[in-house]
């Protein structure tokens, strides 16, 4: 079943067409990689899909609903959650607050409940806190709960960003270069987390420009070049695709 369908997506910046009639689909339960050289339009595609950038043309369908015009907060609530290429922790918040922030449907985020400290708000906060501590345990961040996110190392930031996204219980997670600037040990750890999450039913779309990291992890690859989809297929098929080799791997 198709979870995400992107059809004819186009986005330009001035005279530069960053993404040009890009179409692809992601099936529920898949791990899909999106590769391409720098400037291929990967992040712009992510930005358009996640509502961060408006697209010039094309449609985005998520779980059967047209979400082309949907703002980022709406997509996040629907279960389409993204991370950023440069990790973007909320540095002036503690690790715990970073984790609690995304809690969906929190009554305490409405002024009346916040001022009145209602039971509904306290209960939701307690539930969210338990879930956050579980996730921080899974991601080896339990020792950092009271630290400000600014004090985390680069690797810990990657893990926190992943853990934080899971607080939204996403059905599709878009990861923008989760392995960039990460040492091999941590890369293996992140790969394990991704595999475990996928085994639990999470669908993932992962941007990467190192093909090697993705070949064992993903079911399918989408290759972008110059803002267009060059090829899609299994990692094996992609590695033998002449066009891909010419445009990307050969270079």
């Amino acid at each position: 079943m198709t979870l995400l369908a992107v059809e004819g997506l186009r986005r330009s910046f001035g005279s530069l067409v960053a993404v040009d009639s890009v179409s692809f689909e992601v099936e529920r339960g898949e791990v899909v990689g999106m590769i391409g050289p720098n400037g291929a339009g990967k992040t712009t595609t992510f930005n358009c899909v996640s509502g961060v950038l408006p697209s010039d043309a094309g449609t985005v369908t998520f779980e059967g609903a047209d979400v082309t015009e949907a703002p980022p907060y709406d997509l996040a609530r629907r279960g389409l959650v993204r991370t950023f290429q440069q990790t973007r922790e909320l540095e002036t918040l503690t690790v715990t607050d970073n984790m609690l922030l995304p809690t969906p449907d929190h009554p305490g985020e409405r002024a009346w409940h916040a001022v009145g400290r209602t039971a509904a708000s306290e209960q939701r906060e307690q539930e969210a806190r338990e879930r956050a501590m579980d996730l921080l345990g899974t991601f080896d961040l339990r020792g950092m709960v009271e630290e400000y996110a600014a004090s985390l190392s680069g690797g810990q930031r990657k893990l926190l960003e992943l853990a934080r996204a899971l607080m939204l219980d996403p059905s599709l997670l878009l990861l923008d270069e989760p392995f960039a600037g990460v040492n091999p040990t941590l890369t293996a750890e992140i790969v394990e987390h991704i595999e475990a999450l996928n085994a639990d039913g999470l669908t993932l779309l992962i941007i990467e420009h190192e093909l090697e990291t993705l070949t064992d992890l993903v079911d399918r690859l989408i290759v972008l070049a110059d803002g267009r989809v060059l090829a899609t297929g299994t990692p094996e098929a992609i590695m033998e695709n002449e066009e891909v080799i010419d445009a990307y791997l050969g270079g």
Partner: peptide, 30 residues
């Protein structure tokens, strides 16, 4: 009243907005 508001999950959203609006938006906050 304002201290209660800021020392609550509501205030957490406010501090997140101060830190990074775009990230806060992609985490489901209007």
């Amino acid at each position: 009243l304002f201290h209660r508001l800021s020392a609550s999950p509501y205030g957490r959203v406010l501090r997140a907005i101060r830190a990074d609006e775009q990230v806060t938006e992609t985490l489901g906050k209007r």
